[in-house]
């Protein structure tokens, strides 16, 4: 029986939390590697992308994705179905990303500064040849870099992953009003830095 999960695309579709999902979880927690591979195939897309946007580094996102799935594998037996597997995976991913940033804070602050300096010094030469997608990517990366990791997580969950405020509250373990005020502060910050970022990118 094939494990059917629907990929979350901008919140328009949802992962189904049904008996089949529970059966796959039960099998995976009993050591069935194929069942766990099915879970990986269904969820690794958003795990990697959330980690990528929160940390802004591919290598970090890679490590975090590995860490998330090893953690999930070890804790599947204690998964109590109080929330959907998807919500739980988002929570584990966001926590792993934020912890990773804290753990590597001093190292990363130097690396990010270096990356940004490199980007701006080369931007004038080859920005004109960049496709719109790449340009947008650069703007986004810079905008996200202006936010705190917690604010980044909020923007990523809402605008990229399409989670509702209630789902975000569940993932971030805060109440809905705290979600609202965190989003508000993040967007106000984005508004205040957008000129600087856009000028740098053009």
């Amino acid at each position: 029986m094939k494990f059917q999960l629907i990929y979350a695309q901008r919140g328009k579709t949802r992962f189904m939390h049904n008996n089949q999902t529970e059966e796959v979880i039960a099998r995976a927690s009993n050591g069935d590697l194929q069942a766990f591979r099915d879970i990986y195939d269904a969820y690794s897309g958003f795990v990697f992308n959330v980690a990528l946007r929160v940390t802004r580094h591919r290598e970090d996102a890679r490590e975090i994705t590995q860490e998330v799935f090893v953690t999930v594998h070890n804790k599947l037996k204690s998964f109590r179905y109080q929330s959907s597997l998807r919500t739980w995976m988002y929570r584990v991913t966001v926590n792993a990303s934020l912890n990773y940033i804290k753990k590597h804070a001093s190292l990363k602050s130097r690396t990010v500064a270096y990356d940004d300096a490199l980007g701006s010094s080369y931007s004038r030469d080859y920005m004109a040849e960049k496709s719109e997608r790449e340009h947008n990517e650069g703007v986004i990366n810079r905008l996200l870099g202006m936010l705190t990791p917690e604010q980044r997580a909020c923007i990523v969950l809402r605008s990229m992953e399409g989670l509702s405020y209630e789902e975000m509250a569940d993932v971030l373990a805060i109440d809905v009003n705290a979600v609202r005020s965190r989003l508000k502060r993040a967007r106000e910050k984005l508004l205040s830095v957008r000129k600087e970022v856009l000028e740098n990118e053009l």
């Binding site: 901008r10 591979r37 992308n49 890679r62 994705t65 090893v70 947008n136 990517e137 986004i140």
Partner: peptide
């Protein structure tokens, strides 16, 4: 400035090799 650019962003493909690295740690 705060909504559309993020919604336009496409998801990146998961790099190959992550599953093998996970598998080794299980």
């Amino acid at each position: 400035s705060t909504v559309a650019p993020f919604q336009r962003l496409e998801r990146e493909d998961v790099p190959p090799g992550i599953w093998d690295a996970i598998r080794e740690q299980l």
